[in-house]
Each structure stands twice: as structure tokens, then as C-alpha cells.
Nucleic acid binder design. Structure first.
Lengths: 157, 157
DNA sequence: GTACTTGCAAATAATTTGCAAATAT
DNA sequence: ATATTTGCAAATTATTTGCAAGTAC
């Protein structure tokens, strides 16, 4: 863990690599899904007994600030975390198993430019999140392995 | 208010148009920014004294389910609400004054299709939010009319 | 008249902070 | 050796729920 991008990222900022932080990084690297702080705690406690929720919150925030982890925004229950998996990470989230796959945001530039021109806004960043079903969850008859449920009960986007 | 899309939307669902709901709808229609439930309460209380926060939460949720209002996701302090302003609403949010402008998501289809093919996911919906500065806030020297502050202190997307 | 709504108060859940003890470097 | 980090407990903040009273239709 010490030599991962996350580990190096922390050191580069003059931060210390404690056993707690290493355990949290390990959890994030091994997870395919987005995780809440409580879930990170649960998994991390395996490697690091006595790990505290406060530390998890603080470490996730450090990793977010150094750009290694990103918040995943969900209609219900916001603020889960997932690591960035490819350059320029945006997230593709599975409704069934919560797996998160990153993808680059190429192809968005035109839309952003056009919108910026039309509105006069200067666009500094963007958040793009696709929601759907991963191959495995499509097969296993939709949402049966599900946890977070649907998005609502009427039309939306 | 009774004849607005929001008002009709509620009636269409067999819901009643109470003074509280009308006041909340008015607040949303008159706001250019995204608002937290507490802010909606504060403004709505002008028209409807005694309006309760519980009612605001419940009404925003009803409007969200009927597709007239959407949650705006922010890195810090998620879960503000803004009305949908154009078809297929996505949001362009001003960091300075929190104004929210909607825009249609045309141009995203290719990216979505390509990503779906590459990953095998079936994509059911997406969340796109652009963040930047509106024309007014660009002039008045960036973030001076600001409230929510920056996004962090290191690189990100 | 009746079913839907409201607002209060209380319950829950999520997140942050103060601080003394522990620890990485 | 020392500044950073931890974890507890407590404080905050956000959101939800039960329920009797009120109200739109």
C-alpha cells in the first residue's frame, strides 16, 4: 500500500502513512463498489482493529483532496466514496451491486463548450455520473442483488 | 401557482394544493439558485407563516418524484434543490451566486452509448452537472459574492 | 364527511470537533 | 524529540417518523 498512488500522494503532501491510513487505502483499492464511510470502517477494521470512524472520515477527505478518491452522488443517500480508476475519472455506477467503473470524459468537451457559449458561464469543472446495470446484474434478473433501491416512482431524466 | 406545471403536476397525481405547497412552489419558481430545504422554508414562510420544515422536506420530495425539481449535488453539502428549467434538465451551477441554469443533454448520447458498449453496462440514467461562474460573477471579480467556498485545495477533475 | 396534510416533538442518522494519549518520522 | 495522528465522547447538523389536529376537496 505504501507504494500505491494513494500512498505516495499522501507522503507527497507531507502526511504520515499510519497503519490506519494504509488499511483504508487497501479497502479502497480492493473495492469495486462505492462505499460509505461506515462501510470503509467495517472492512478496514479487519486489517486494523480499533480503527475509528472519525479517522475514516478524515482520511477519505484527505484522499479526496489529493484527488485519489471521489464522492459518488446518488439520489438517495449521497456521499459514498469510490477511488478514481482511470484518468479524468467519472463514474459509471451499477444500481444492482454498486460497482463503480471509471471512464474518461472525452467527448464531453463539445457539449461543455457549447453550453458555456450559450449561457456565458465559464465552466470550471463537471460532474458526470452514469447509472445503470453492470453485465452481471443484467443477467441475474435486474435488481435482485440490489441494496439501494430505485430512484423514485415517476418519470425523471 | 395553481396553474403552473408544478401545481398541475401535483393535482395530476391526486395530491392537494395546500397553501403550504403553493408557497413552496412559488419559492422554487422565483429562485434562480439552488436552495436547501432550510432556505426554502425561510423564503416560503413569507407567504405562508407557520410553514414547517417537515412540510418542506415532504413537498420537495413530492416535486422531485413528479420530476419538477431536481437535487443538485455539490462536493460540500449535498442535497440542495433546483427546479428543472428546460427539457431533460441538467444543471449548470454558479460557484459564485449559486444560480442554477438548466440545459438539455443533447450531445451526451454518443458518449453514453460508447461507454455502455465498452463496459457492457446498460445505462439507465445520468447525472451531469457543470460547475463554473455565471457572467455576473465573472465580472465582479470571482468568488466574492460567494457562499459555499471552493471545492478543495488540490487538483481534481 | 373523509382522506389527505400539517406541524410539533421526538427519534434517527450523518458528520464534525475538542482533547489527551499514542505514534511515525 | 516533536509535530502529526488517533479515537473517544460530545456536539452539530440533517433528515425522518408518529400522531393528533386541521383542511382541501
Amino acid at each position: 500500500m505504501r507504494d500505491t498512488a494513494m500512498g505516495k500522494g499522501l507522503r507527497a503532501r507531507g502526511l504520515r502513512l499510519t497503519s490506519q491510513r494504509l488499511a483504508i487505502i487497501k479497502v479502497l483499492l480492493e473495492a469495486d463498489e462505492h462505499l460509505t464511510p461506515a462501510e470503509v470502517l467495517e472492512r478496514g477494521a479487519g486489517d486494523c482493529p480499533g480503527l475509528g470512524l472519525t479517522t475514516v472520515y478524515r482520511t477519505l477527505e484527505l484522499l479526496r483532496k489529493s484527488g485519489h478518491v471521489q464522492r459518488v452522488h446518488l439520489e438517495e443517500g449521497c456521499h459514498a466514496y469510490a477511488r478514481l480508476q482511470e484518468k479524468e475519472g467519472h463514474h459509471l455506477v451499477c444500481q444492482g451491486c454498486h460497482r463503480v467503473v471509471g471512464f474518461p470524459c472525452t467527448g464531453l468537451a463539445d457539449l461543455v463548450d457549447e453550453t458555456a457559449q450559450r449561457t456565458g458561464f465559464s465552466v470550471e469543472s463537471h460532474l458526470l455520473e452514469l447509472v445503470g446495470l453492470c453485465p452481471a446484474c443484467q443477467e441475474s434478473d435486474s435488481i435482485e442483488c440490489n441494496a439501494a433501491g430505485g430512484t423514485g416512482d415517476l418519470p425523471s431524466v
